[in-house]
């Protein structure tokens, strides 16, 4: 407790390694209790959707077999959340529809972010005439009512899972491209990018070594919101009767089918799923918000 420990303390503080950036960010993220709760909730729901059918297999695809089940029956010991109008077990169907909703939403969000990032990076980085043209094209896309375009495209093509992912993904990136472009323009004009340019670095080198790594935080945040949006739009398509075709289903289609029967008092076909669904979107958006905070440079310890 005397001189020795004092010196070691002093040494410890002077040679202490700087905490890596990602760790500081992780710390900010994990200090946010609600963000952790959101992550846990999403994990729980995802595990439920993908694993529950294995623990408690229910028939979710054969309408002929399902018809032997009681129809629109309330929850009991055999059907924990009752059955729907086709005789499918509702709890099992929530998991089955969730597999589609979550997977499609996730993949469509990924398509959105990839296309939007590429477009925004190229436009923002090249600047000049290319940027002007690309931005006017984007303006044109942004002035088309998204939902109108979506339902038109979905009615033109077959409603398979792949095509739904592509339709939602390839039409959802306009806002993303704008954000990423602003980022790329900003970073392009920062000192380190300009230094690289003076040293003769190629444009491609600057994009993938400087612009892309430095906008990754924004990309990740926007990607989170894209997934939430894609899940919402998929559910809207389902509500409009343009979701996956039976016997496949998604949460939007299930909510629509259940909502139609609510006057008969079949609450179990809507409200449990509605709560799960809303909370999933809340959780994803909240994670996005918390990520944005974690990436905020101002909050890092310096």
């Amino acid at each position: 407790m005397t001189a020795t420990s004092l010196t070691t303390d002093a040494v410890a503080t002077t040679v202490e390694m700087p905490v890596p950036m990602w760790r500081q960010r992780l710390k900010i993220f994990t200090q946010n209790k609600l963000a952790i709760a959101s992550v846990l909730y999403l994990l729980l729901i995802t595990l439920f959707c993908f694993l529950w059918p294995h623990f408690h297999p229910t028939n979710q695809t054969n309408q002929n077999l399902a018809i032997n089940n009681p129809i629109n029956q309330g929850p009991d010991s055999q059907f924990w959340l009752g059955t729907d109008s086709s005789g499918f077990d509702v709890l099992g169907r929530i998991a089955y529809g969730g597999e589609y909703s979550l997977t499609l939403g996730f993949l469509a969000g990924i398509v959105t972010i990839v296309v939007g990032t590429l477009y925004g990076m190229i436009s923002g980085f090249l600047g000049g005439v290319v940027d002007t043209v690309m931005m006017r094209v984007l303006d044109a896309f942004l002035s088309i009512p998204y939902l109108f375009l979506l339902i038109t495209l979905v009615t033109l093509f077959a409603r398979t899972a792949t095509l739904l992912i592509l339709t939602i993904g390839l039409t959802g990136w306009w806002g993303t491209a704008r954000i990423i472009r602003a980022d790329a323009m900003l970073i392009r004009n920062l000192e380190y990018s300009q230094a690289a340019t003076t040293m003769g670095a190629s444009k491609w080198h600057i994009i993938h070594r400087h612009v892309f790594p430095n906008s990754i935080s924004n990309i990740v945040t926007v990607a989170t919101f894209s997934v939430a949006d894609a899940i919402l739009f998929l559910s809207t398509l389902g509500f409009l009767g343009l979701g996956l075709q039976a016997p496949q289903t998604d949460w939007g289609t299930m909510l629509q089918n259940g909502a139609e029967l609510i006057p008969n008092g079949y609450w179990w076909e809507v409200y449990p799923l509605a709560a799960i669904f809303i909370l999933v979107v809340v959780a994803i958006n909240y994670i996005g918000d918390a990520l944005r905070d974690a990436f905020e440079v101002r909050l890092l310890e310096r």
Binding site: A228, V282, N285
Partner: peptide, 15 residues
Amino acid sequence: AFVLYAVPSFLLAFL
């Protein structure tokens, strides 16, 4: 606002 933002419009209308 967070919850309202997460409710699809059709579900909000229904509720």
